[in-house]
Computed example of a mutant assay.
Amino acid sequence: MQRYVDERKYPGSSVLVTRGGEEVYFNSCGLRSLEMNLPFERDTLVRIYSMTKPVTSVAVMMLAERGMFHLDAPVSSFIPGFAEMQALVPGADRIDQVEPSTSPTLHQLLTHTSGLSYPFNPGVLAQAMDEQDLMFKPNQGELAGMVDQVAKLPLAFQPGTRWEYSVGIDVLGRVVEVVSGKTLAQFFAEEIFEPLEMTETAFWVPEGAGDRFASLYTPLAGDAMALNASKSGGETLRLVDQAGRSPFESARMFSGGGGLVGTIDDYQRFAEMLRRGGEANGHRLLSPNTLNFMMRNHLPGDIASMGPQSFAEQPMEGMGFGLGGAVVLEPGRARVPGSVGDFSWGGMASTFFWLDRAKDLTVVFFTQLSPSSSYPSRSELKALIHGALIE
């Protein structure tokens, strides 16, 4: 971690490791703000971006456990804009080259097989999304309106035929709102964060946080999210977003795919709940059976076998995908030490977590550098952790 700081790869970072529910290691180093010379500390608040997705997936499964819907239900049953869908024809090079399509199911949205995409992916749909700036940023209005805009575009492919990282979990956040009658922020706060005592996690920087909110940096010359046009800027830590001027301080968009801000201890509580089979602090969010179901591979094979053309927060070979995160199928093919069944995901600012139920292990890593594809820190971290385990 210190080497990454010394080499000006990351401004600062922290890591928290627990085993059997007990903390065994914590370290932080570097700065949360280079400009203000403020240290990266245990109570530093960061943008967890796509590590929001497992939280939304838990919310979806909580409602499924209550019999509110089944996973093969079409999303059009909850969001009418998806009722008459079209998909791009194979090989399309224009957004109007389409054919009729079914509405994606909740399960396809959960597993990134829905045909939706992200603006930073390659392809015709991604380009159209980029032109319309469909990114679910904290200052882009309210969730319902953005989801309706996404529904007006065709799908990148027929649902279920491919894997492509997408805004599907954002769409599911809207489904949670429709079914529960609460905003996604309310549902998270009342049904997940309060029981888990995640007091400093929300879609906005908590009031009274002061200067604990970390600044975001990028090594790119342009947009820190523009993976299709990524160019080195020479400066490896160019400031993108900082406390006092951040849209995360007054967010109106509740992005279930990437909107949360929080501390490392808060996220560890969430990861531990997953490891413990849905329970923490005497509160049960999900049954162990549901958690086991979520952490199975829901694809026909590994991610690579489904012809992805997109960015992803994980390797694709030897990795399957469950509900809310990646699942290790074969560590050898993934080329990263680990256990079969490891469940993990990361965020665009290079944050990462995984849990290893075979070894009773959870690890959360926080930093603030976008994009997460800049350096191989995640595979290096897994190698370090597994190298330290002797039983």
Rank of each mutant, 00 (worst) to 15 (best):
E7C: 10
S14W: 07
T18Y: 11
G21M: 11
S28V: 12
G30Y: 06
F40H: 06
Y49E: 07
Y49A: 11
S50G: 07
K53D: 02
P54H: 02
M61G: 04
M61H: 03
A64G: 08
L71Q: 01
V75N: 01
I79H: 10
P80K: 04
Q86E: 14
Q86P: 09
A92M: 06
D93V: 15
R94H: 14
I95R: 01
I95V: 07
P104R: 04
D133F: 14
F136P: 06
N139H: 15
Q140R: 10
G145C: 07
D148M: 11
Q149P: 06
A156S: 02
A156H: 00
F157S: 00
Q158S: 10
P159G: 00
G168V: 01
V171M: 00
V175F: 08
V175R: 05
V175I: 07
V176E: 01
E191N: 09
F193N: 07
P206A: 02
T218N: 10
D241A: 01
G258T: 03
T263L: 06
I264G: 12
Q268C: 12
G277N: 08
E279S: 15
M294R: 02
D302Q: 11
E317R: 15
L323C: 03
G325E: 01
A326V: 02
A326M: 00
A334S: 05
A334T: 01
R335C: 10
M348A: 15
S350E: 05
A358F: 04
T367N: 04
S377M: 14
K382A: 09
L384K: 02
H386E: 10
